[in-house]
Design a binder for these strands. Structure first.
Lengths: 338, 338
DNA sequence: TTGAAAGCGTTACCAG
DNA sequence: CTGGTAACGCTTTCAA
């Protein structure tokens, strides 16, 4: 019982060579059924287990994929994790988690892991790309990277994303259709593409509706509950507070609703609020939050599927998949009261 | 640029043997400073990167730990993930995610990964142990497994947990001190130890306060928002509805509050509600939820630290660490109104 | 302090 | 179809 049984032991017991054992165990067509069965029997009698490390060294793969996020404790990612995990394990890959905490050095570490073969592919959700990293300079073929939900400039990577701008327009249109005219937008951080696109959608919808955006009607938050509260405070300290809020994510919307309640303003009686993301909790929030829903699990699944296609060379040209969003009408929005 | 530079190339350039290169790069005390520097220089000139797969095969380690949960998309785990990840990466370990979806076969798969050396250790949060798995039968020393937040019977594994029973008592005592006498408890699933301990705490506290628990005052949910709603419905369809609810987790508490609102009952004016877990959202819920807080990030950190100690043989006997909980008073509980 | 060489456990090439 | 054997890239004895 000292050392685990290896292919050599099976070879001895079954009376064949290690090469044949390897072939038999991997269902190669180069062995007869008879020897295949003989080998398998010996293997199971000896309680054989493949040494994955040895195989990976030999075949030059790690059978692992790396999922890199900015902040592991963001609840938004949960369903995505799950979608990625499901597809990965079905394909025999294990899932390595990467957490950058917005630290560029860590970003690079994960790219290094990819280059060094510790992972065969990467799903990147940070929206950041280390400049000039070797991994990206694949003369032939694509780098085994799928950028999810974010977009990185200038390079030919596979992307999976949603149409943030159109979704934002849809949200604002809904508020307009309820009769709102003073509609403010609590933005996400604007260096990031996500925040910019949602802001652009807001502006476009407002313009199309012939509505002005007063100076300061689009305060910038950082997606945290607290910053939602803070931005809301700014907006309602004004002399011309809005009657409706389009907020760039649900968490800031929660913060905003909290602040409104603190001021004695009812949602949606006094102010309508619409969020973005449809977190698991939003449906049962008080009031249930009207929001834009993204198919997060499917995004994870699709990202991983794409990554497998790249790794398997079934996908060789940059491709962007756009997933549909949906406006979920709940009880945090209502007609404007004059 | 076809193939990556390896230790052999460095050896050639630096004019030493591969053995010396290996030693130099790992800061062995068996090389002189001079040769060490010479080797390092060559390595960096050649842009050398260690082949982790090859090293792992040779040293018979994977430098990976496996974090196994029942359901990856449970927001409760987020901070734990983060805590584990931080300690793991500081120690040079990568984090592999395992998701069982309550499927025993998957459970076994992850134990197999551990036995097969695909991971050097495991943090188990499913509360389930496959019977008689080889991994557990370590004649000498402990299995490299830390059971977190759950308890598994009968075996000598390291545990990290909270005192669920005492925490539950504390919650109920708080309701009692506010004058509540008709206090119900929405339980988690009772086959599981967690649910049982919280129920026990509830019963003990009620008994100590001299309060009866009417038949049916402790409906069983499944930790989902929906089941919280359902259990609440049952309780308030009674002729003797409670004036206070101690709910076994925050999500069910949200469901319950939603149901109460639907019935026109105010929280805490008409009914007090107290949850368990202190999810990220609970603080800004409406109303802000009184709940029991667990130090989740620290639990993750401590679990991983313990695991490293076991792997490094610094910890050789089963040990249970108990983390403190805290009752967080917010606005969902208030004095009973006659 | 250094080098030669033996593995770690597979897979895959090349003969037969 | 099968067997011998050379890798995969590193670490670590054992000798010098």
């Amino acid at each position: 019982m000292s050392s685990r049984t290896k292919i050599k032991d099976i070879a001895r017991v079954a009376g064949v060579s290690t090469a044949t054992v390897s072939r038999a165990l991997s269902d190669s067509s180069l062995v007869t059924h008879a020897t295949r069965d003989k080998v398998r029997e010996a293997a199971s009698k000896l309680n054989y287990r493949l040494n994955v490390r040895a195989r990976n060294l030999r075949i030059q793969k790690s059978m692992a994929v790396l999922l890199v996020v900015r902040n592991m404790s963001n609840p938004f990612y949960l369903e995505i994790f799950k979608g990625v995990e499901a597809v990965a394990r079905a394909a025999g890959y294990v899932l390595l988690m990467g957490n950058t905490e917005d630290d560029d050095d860590r970003d690079i570490e994960y790219f290094d892991m990819l280059r060094d073969g510790q992972a065969d592919g990467m799903i990147l959700m940070t929206g950041k790309l280390p400049a000039d990293h070797e991994v990206l300079q694949t003369a032939s073929g694509m780098a085994p990277i799928v950028v999810a939900l974010e977009a990185v400039d200038d390079c030919k990577l596979a992307h999976i994303q949603i149409d943030n701008c159109t979704a934002a327009k849809q949200a604002v249109n809904h508020l307009v259709s309820l009769g709102h005219r003073r509609i403010a937008h609590i933005c996400g951080p604007l260096p990031e593409i996500l925040g910019r696109l949602r802001l652009e959608g807001y502006r476009t919808a407002m313009a199309e509706a012939g509505l002005d955006i007063p100076e300061g009607y689009d305060p910038v938050g950082d997606y945290s509950i607290h910053s939602g509260k803070e931005c809301c405070r700014q907006l309602f300290d004004r002399e011309d507070p809005p009657t409706a809020l389009f907020v760039a994510n649900d968490e800031m919307a929660f913060g905003a609703i909290g602040e409104l309640r603190r001021r004695g303003l009812g949602v949606p009686q006094d102010v309508s609020v619409i969020g973005f993301d449809d977190l698991f909790i939003s449906e049962s929030y008080s009031p249930p939050l009207t929001t834009i829903s993204q198919p997060r699990m499917e995004i994870g699944q699709t990202a991983m599927t794409m990554l497998l296609d790249i790794i398997g060379a079934r996908l060789t040209d940059p491709k962007t998949i756009e997933m549909p969003t949906e406006l979920i009408l709940r009880e945090s929005t209502g007609p404007v009261i004059q």
